[in-house]
């Protein structure tokens, strides 16, 4: 199946979890937030969140600004 991570296409096996994707992606242990299809998924829920074909995953952090 295909998912989009920060706008980039990625092919994942059926049943892949958000935690698995983020581990592969190299997400740091803190300072990060994730949304799936426009809704925040808390870190505690990453392992239990199964991705489906076509979802948009956004990985965000704090940058200089304001």
């Amino acid at each position: 199946m295909t998912v989009f991570v920060n706008g980039e296409r990625r092919e994942l096996p059926e049943g892949a979890t958000l935690a698995g994707l983020l581990e592969q992606w190299g997400v740091p242990p803190s300072g990060v937030a994730v949304a799936v299809d426009g809704a925040v998924v808390t870190r505690a829920s990453w392992a239990a969140t199964t991705l489906s074909d076509g979802v948009a995953v956004e990985v965000l952090t704090a940058v200089q600004g304001g």
């Binding site: 190299g26 997400v27 956004e58 990985v59 965000l60 952090t61 704090a62 940058v63 200089q64 600004g65």
Partner: peptide, 13 residues
């Protein structure tokens, strides 16, 4: 203040 933006792969700013 800090802004919230898309992260580059595996990198903290």
């Amino acid at each position: 203040t800090v802004a919230i933006r898309r992260m580059d792969t595996g990198e903290r700013t």
